[in-house]
Design a protein around this nucleic acid. Structure first.
Lengths: 207, 207
DNA sequence: ACACTTACATACCAATTGGTATGTAAGTGC
DNA sequence: GCACTTACATACCAATTGGTATGTAAGTGT
């Protein structure tokens, strides 16, 4: 089964829109610019997407969500040692995420801050991705409990919410400072927070 | 000494601009809207501010920075028990910050995410406010060390950076979820992080 | 091979944008 | 009381915005 030409065109628009939105934000993203990079025209864009809003929502669902799924969610879900993977990912964060994610910000966080209060569809779509992230970490913490790594009395839902929030906060502040180094330092404190959720005897195993 | 009329006009523009920017973001903020609320005209605005950028920078310096100074920096700097104040502020956060700060986001964070990668003057001005916040918390932690509340081996600079980052992250995520309750839950985890920096015997004193 | 749909390209549009040029009335210094 | 500056108001402008109406060439089903 081969990939249809229209789907290629659609993907080209989505990818170009993602890049433009990542750099300029959604509202400032220019449809003219998006098209320029693809060498397509408005006819193509408005054939595949009824409005700019629909294009933006599709970027969240089909580009951003997919990226997060591949980079964070899937590895963590499928890991045999989720707590170890979580801690290692955070400790080596700058090798895990591209530099653009810090200098331009996290695409998810950027859109959350820009659009959540302005457009309910954006808010819901973004909240959906965030919810998956949160649930994935909740599940990791829960499995950590069963493996005797995470203390039983920990409120894993609150902890997961905080981990995601702090994570985005670290990127956000590092973006302002334009400093991947600050991101690294900041994430090491999040590393410390997660370690504070662990059983004492399990900490030794995790360097 | 009485307040000059021109200064009143200038302040009216600044305040209106702050509200518009808080709701729409800087780029989407419309000068026409800003003026509508003040019943002034472009002549007035461009007399007091040479460009929209200059207006935005003035809003950061003369509205946002001043608000933060009054709400967070000054109380913490002048407190005799800074760690207690920090923990109490976080525990009662929803009574400390207006609901707009969650539903519309933190004005500082909003602008950091929108503008840091686009405009160096914005980035520097915002980083300046962030730096004061960070320094104020650094100093609070340092005084906490001297009072035997914070453990001596704690890296207070990294911790302060993380506290500010996580704080903004909590607001950011709560903004996306449009949930002051989530903000409260999230901030209680930050509360727990700060407690994890404390001496064991000092923890008992703090409820 | 004919009817119909898909997948675009081209040309156009009203609305809005930040910014400017000009005008003017009210202070202000001397 | 005259010269000059301040503090605005009014009218205008080029550029850009998202969106649409129309045209057309290439499939696609029958």
């Amino acid at each position: 089964m081969q990939i249809k030409q229209p789907d290629i065109t659609r993907d080209k628009i989505l990818l170009s829109a993602f890049c433009e939105i990542h750099r300029q934000g959604f509202q400032a993203a220019s449809i003219a610019n998006i098209l320029q990079y693809t060498h397509l025209t408005k006819g193509a864009l408005y054939h595949h997407f009824p409005t700019k809003q629909a294009l933006g929502l599709a970027v969240i669902e089909e580009v951003i969500k997919v990226q997060f799924e591949a980079m964070f969610f899937k590895p963590l879900r499928e890991s045999e040692h989720p707590i170890k993977l979580l801690l290692d990912s955070i400790a080596n964060i700058n090798s895990k995420v591209p530099a653009d994610f810090i200098l331009l910000g996290c695409p998810l966080n950027n859109l959350m801050q820009e659009m959540s209060a302005l457009d309910e569809l954006f808010q819901l779509q973004l909240a959906g991705v965030l919810e998956i992230w949160k649930k994935t970490i909740e599940d990791a913490l829960l499995r950590g409990k069963k493996m005797g790594e995470i203390r039983a009395e920990i409120d894993h839902k609150s902890a997961a919410l905080f981990i995601v929030s702090a994570w985005e906060g670290c990127i956000g502040v590092a973006k302002n400072m334009q400093s991947p180094k600050a991101f690294e330092v900041c994430m090491m404190q999040l590393h410390g927070y997660i370690r504070s959720l662990m059983q004492e005897n399990a900490k030794k195993l995790q360097r």
